[in-house]
């Protein structure tokens, strides 16, 4: 699954650590999601969407 997390984070001028703190996860989690090495659970994906105030489908895309 691909995502725009890095782009959204960059637009707000946040570091991975800042985003990790806002989501209450480790910085490694943010890094793994951004680089596509880890697909978050639905609750975490919704939390990300709420934080950036965009629909979930505008952040995560099917790889196909």
């Amino acid at each position: 699954m691909r995502n725009r997390l890095k782009e959204l984070r960059g637009a707000r001028g946040w570091s991975q650590g800042t985003l990790a703190e806002a989501l209450d996860v480790s910085r490694q989690s943010v890094n793994a999601i951004e680089t596509g090495r880890y697909d978050p659970s639905l609750p975490l994906a919704f939390k990300i969407a709420r934080l950036f105030e965009v629909p979930i489908e505008q952040i995560f895309f099917d790889s196909d």
Binding site: V25, S26, Q28, S29, A32, I33
Partner: peptide
């Protein structure tokens, strides 16, 4: 208690 990525 930890986050899901660390747990995995």
């Amino acid at each position: 208690e930890t986050d899901e990525y660390t747990r995995r």
